[in-house]
Design a protein around this nucleic acid. Structure first.
Length: 189
DNA sequence: GCTAGGCAGGAACCCCTCCTCCCCT
């Protein structure tokens, strides 16, 4: 099955009060990461990026100054996704609510997509653990972050796609159906 | 190491509500 793994960087944690500033995604097919089929963009939030977010993500006002606004960024992201199932880490509680709120705030026409959350893969494999954040998952899988910029969506999506494949193979080695719940979410048309 | 919001899951309890923790930036 085709799966688009994605990650967002934002100006904070609140979908209603904060803005998306970066989107990155990569396609997974037949148990492989297709690095040639990737997508990333900065997004102009039309407001200054808080200093804490710049120090956390490395994304500054200069990075987003010439970037597309959220409407065109989401439209392009939607074309990249097509009718694939999408997946993000903690996407059920963070990324998908952010996309839904961005569509609502900007009157962007929407459609429904199927999405999964890799946190459920981690919970399935390490049932006894309380820790299922991306750092904990990467550490348990022995995936090195050396040379990869954490908290930049392009770096995080690269790490996450590798982590998803490894977890998926542990449960269903042929990577056919995803062994975690599929949700239906609001997505730009 | 601090901040923000909202959801999920567990506890206590009998059906919801409350509470706490994790997780994302």
């Amino acid at each position: 099955m085709d799966l688009v793994v994605f990650d967002l960087e934002t100006t904070g944690l609140s979908p209603t009060g904060n803005e998306i500033i970066q989107i990155a995604a990569v396609r997974l097919r037949l148990g492989k990461v297709f690095h040639s089929e990737s997508y990333s963009t900065f997004v102009n939030p039309r407001r200054p990026i808080p200093a804490f977010i710049t120090s956390y993500t490395g994304i500054s006002d200069a990075h987003v100054r010439g970037a597309p606004p959220i409407c065109s960024a989401l439209a392009e992201f939607s074309r990249f996704v097509g009718d694939c199932t999408i997946l993000a880490h903690n996407g059920h509680r963070f990324d998908m609510p952010f996309i839904r709120a961005a569509c609502a705030k900007n009157c962007i026409p929407t459609r429904k997509v199927q999405y999964a959350d890799s946190i459920y893969l981690s919970r399935l494999i390490w049932r006894e653990s309380r820790w299922h954040g991306l750092d904990a998952v990467l550490e348990r899988l022995g995936i090195s972050t050396v040379g990869i910029r954490r908290h930049d969506a392009r770096g995080d999506v690269e790490l996450l796609s590798e982590a998803v494949l490894r977890m998926w193979r542990r449960i269903t080695p042929d990577c056919t159906a995803l062994p975690v719940p599929l949700f239906t979410g609001t997505f730009p048309r």
